[in-house]
Every structure is written in structure tokens, then in C-alpha cells.
Design a protein around this nucleic acid. Structure first.
Lengths: 164, 164
DNA sequence: AGTAATGTGAAATTGAATATCAAAAGCAGA
DNA sequence: TCTGCTTTTGATATTCAATTTCACATTACT
């Protein structure tokens, strides 16, 4: 009986945004602990704010957001903390055409590529199983062991095609 | 009769490296003319040396090559000239994982992507018609008009897998 | 040749990423 | 809770490639 309630709760947690946030906080705490990192107010705040974002953020973006409510927190701390999130598996660095590193949220078991509008800078995520397979084949043909890949499509979104 | 000889010569030109080089020089001269650019000794030299390379070169790489035979030519000139080649359609800028812009030769009607060995920095070019098509489909599904794309596979080549 | 405009080279600037370091804060043990 | 050691922080400096600047040289045109 107790077990069943716990399972329900767990499913609930994973299916709501709040649950996701709690889960990620837990994951980060575990990472921090395993690495012998200390728990600091700044990191908690930055994690909260990062988790509250939905787009791909640059260090600058997040720094500005953080500074708005916590003016004492410096750029370097945001920079270092985002790197930590990345190591912890909560965030992923993405480098697009404009040479600005952005961080996106990592969702469990998910991989995707990017469709970027050069007009309005919108970033759309997509996934294509067939492309992934073809990539593996190409790599195999050349004797490569693929570690990661990067597929970005640049163009104009429906809206920008009409405006621009 | 005269016409037939001319056609033969043209085919010959396009099928040899020297012919390719002549063709590219001509293309650049036409571009320069259309843009009202002046013809300078430096640009001629840099074009010659660029056309003599076979790999993907960074500005630094080409600058060093140029300096070896023509010490008077500065970095900025090589930099600006490579940009010009790029505008003229002779070269294409490629940005790989290491944050160094490289220039590759543009061959008529050819498109390819890159397989990069993170062990020895070898760059292998490949082409996959199916992937291209899938990309177009994905773009269409999102109402995008694709201008360009970037597909890079990072991993270890056969040799580096064994060594490292 | 004269002259107006473009090109060149050295050096300066930019912009993002990253490193430095003194001061502040967290943590384990007394 | 206090101590002392270690990590973290925040401001600033450094790095590194890309790009711009500017005085001088060179080119195209008459």
C-alpha cells in the first residue's frame, strides 16, 4: 500500500514541471555531493532561475536574469555555475552560428538537433531517427567511432519569410 | 572546326588541377571587377597560395604560408582576402568545434559535411543525399526556408581508436 | 603625370571565454 | 558554537581569435 502511493507520487513528480524541477535539484545536489562541492546560496539561486527559463540561454542572458533579483551575484559565478550544470548533466552547451555559447535543458533520454531562424533567432528543436541512423552508417563506413554530432539547419521561419 | 577545338580545350581545363586553378582565378577576377575592386599583387599571391593548398586552412595557416615566400604581406591582408574569396564563392568558411575559422575550397555544384577526428584533427568530407532530403522535409514541416546547414560528426578515426 | 579612391600593414580594439586572487562563506572537528 | 582549513565568490585581468582603424602606399582613370 505504502509502495503504491510512493509510485504514484513518483509518476506525478515526473509529469509536472514542478516535479521536474525538484528532480533536477536533487540530481544537482547529488552531483555536488559526489564531487565534494559545497552548497551555496548563489548556486541555489542560479539553479532556480535556470530551471525557470524555457529557452536556450547564454551566460549573459542568465546573468542578467539573476542580477535582476540578486544584484550581488557576479558574472563569473553564473558562468562557472552553468559549466557545473553542464557537468552535472542538467544543461548542455550549444554553439550556434553566432559564436555565443548557449545552454539548454537536458531532458532524460532525449536527443535533438536545431532549426535556427536567422531572422528572429528562434531556435526550434527537432529529432530524426533516420538521420541519426544514416550518420552512424557514414561513420562506420569511414571507420569512425562517433562521440557526438551537430546538425543545425539555418534559414528563415514562416513568419520571417513573409516579413523579410 | 574551331569550335570543336575550343570545347576540347575547355573540357581539358576543367579536368585538370591547373585548369581548375585558372578557372578560379578567372572567377575571382570577374568578382573583383564586378565589385569594383582593384587588382593587387598581394591578392594575386594570396590566391595562388590558397589554391595551392589542399586542406582546410585557418587564416593563421595561410598567413604563415604566405609569409614564408612573401614576408611583406600582413595578417590583415590575408584575413581580408580570405573573406573576399568567400564572398566570391571560391572559398567557404567552416567553423568546427575548436573555435578556429577555417576556409575550404568550393568546388562547383558540390556540397558536403564533415567527419572530424577529435584525436588527430583529421577532417573527412562526406556527402549524403538522403540526409539532405530529410533535412528539407524537416524544414518544410516547420515552415522554414533553409539557407544552409551544418552537419558535423565528431569522434575518433580508425587509427586514433587504436592508439588512444 | 595628376588625382581621387582603394588597398595595405601594423597596431589597436572588440567580444566572448576563461583565469586570477583577495575576501567571504561553508564545513568538519574540538 | 568556535576554529581553522578549504572552497567559492566577485571584481577584475587575461587570453585569443576576429575585426577595425588609420596613416601611408598603390591603383585606375583622365
Amino acid at each position: 500500500m505504502t509502495t503504491i502511493i510512493a509510485v504514484d507520487t513518483l509518476i506525478f513528480m515526473f509529469n509536472t514541471e514542478d516535479g521536474m524541477i525538484l528532480e533536477k535539484k536533487k540530481a544537482f545536489n547529488e552531483f555536488a555531493q559526489s564531487k565534494g562541492l559545497r552548497s551555496t546560496r548563489q548556486r541555489d539561486i542560479i539553479l532556480d532561475i535556470f530551471l525557470s527559463t524555457h529557452q536556450h540561454v547564454s551566460v549573459e542572458d542568465l546573468y542578467l536574469k539573476v542580477k535582476a533579483s540578486h544584484p550581488g551575484i557576479g558574472y563569473a559565478t553564473v558562468y562557472r555555475t552553468l559549466k557545473l550544470f553542464s557537468e552535472a548533466g542538467l544543461a548542455r552547451e550549444i554553439l550556434l552560428h553566432d559564436g555565443q555559447t548557449r545552454y539548454e535543458h537536458v531532458l532524460a533520454g532525449e536527443h535533438h538537433d536545431h532549426l535556427v531562424c536567422t531572422g528572429c533567432n528562434a531556435i526550434i528543436e527537432f529529432e530524426d531517427e533516420t538521420i541519426e541512423k544514416l550518420q552512424d552508417e557514414i561513420a562506420a563506413r569511414h571507420g569512425f567511432l562517433i562521440r557526438r554530432h551537430k546538425l543545425e539547419l539555418y534559414g528563415l521561419c514562416a513568419r520571417c519569410r513573409n516579413i523579410g
